[in-house]
């Protein structure tokens, strides 16, 4: 699914789109010593192209396990998972790596950039594993950095960037390959509230261009920036609903600034 797809008008249009993700009765059981831990106890979920889904739940609810399976980093114990119509649940590691390379962009809580490597090189990294030529890599990486508003700082190393800027580099890295979806795992977990709003504004902007975003968070207000919330508890989905009053980053920013002025006064 490319960035150009026009899917930003409303939920109804989105629901007409094809099912990007289709998880059917996913179960995941870990063995810890003599005890079986049931991380997922049968999760079924469809996500259509162009959606902005926030997956919520307390720690131990199974949301991270679900996220890892969606990201092809882990395989379910049973159940089926179709990504773009392809069954990926029981692929070989090499095929999984290929799916990750072509269809998924990851954004992590801890940014996970390579230190001592410039922003541009970090963004080029997934393109390197796709085997693209260097001028093509540079072109796509600069385009992605432009999309997150960091094109002027492409030659900075992660330790020369603020947390928010680092996370934007990470988003650019996820974007660079034009993936089918971006999986963001607690992307604002390490950021202050003001920077969090900036990052969520970027996600909303990308989503409005048609990019599917799946975001894992345990913060209620962060989830309100999305269009749909899915809540996990004890390895099951307990709630799945459309967000009624979506948060607007601009207004939130004004509110936060106002509060900080009051605090300072």
């Amino acid at each position: 699914m490319s960035m150009q797809t026009e899917l930003h008008t409303g939920i109804e249009t989105r629901l007409d789109g094809s099912a990007l993700i289709s998880a059917k009765n996913l179960k995941k059981t870990y063995r810890m010593g003599d005890v079986d831990v049931h991380a997922l106890r049968g999760v079924s979920l469809d996500i259509r192209s162009g959606e902005f889904v926030a997956i919520m739940g307390a720690s131990g609810s199974g949301k991270s396990t679900f996220m890892n399976i969606l990201g092809c980093l882990d395989a379910p114990s049973s159940g089926e998972y179709f990504l773009d119509g392809i069954s990926v649940a029981h692929m070989t590691k090499k095929e999984q790596a290929r799916i990750r390379s072509r269809k998924i962009g990851f954004v992590f809580q801890g940014f996970n950039l390579l230190s001592r490597t410039s922003a541009l090189e970090n963004v080029e990294l997934p393109l390197l594993y796709q085997g693209l030529a260097s001028n093509r890599r540079r072109e796509l990486a600069l385009e992605a950095l432009h999309a997150v508003g960091l094109d002027k700082r492409f030659d900075h190393k992660p330790n020369e960037l603020s947390g928010g800027q680092q996370q934007r580099v990470a988003i650019a890295r996820a974007l660079a390959t034009h993936p089918s979806m971006i999986l963001a795992d607690e992307p604002t977990g390490n950021l202050d509230s003001k920077t969090s709003i900036e990052i969520m504004a970027i996600f909303q902007k990308l989503n409005s261009k048609g990019i599917t975003i799946i975001l894992v968070t345990h913060e209620n207000d962060i989830a309100q920036y999305g269009l749909r919330n899915v809540v996990f508890r004890d390895g099951r989905i307990i709630k799945d609903f459309m967000v009624e009053t979506r948060l607007n980053p601009e207004e939130e920013m004004k509110r936060v600034l106002a509060t900080s002025i009051v605090d300072n006064a």
């Binding site: 990750r100 990851f106 997934p126 390959t177």
Partner: peptide, 10 residues
């Protein structure tokens, strides 16, 4: 881990 997540094969 990062390299694998963004598409490096074994």
């Amino acid at each position: 881990g990062i390299r694998m997540a963004i598409g490096a094969t074994e």
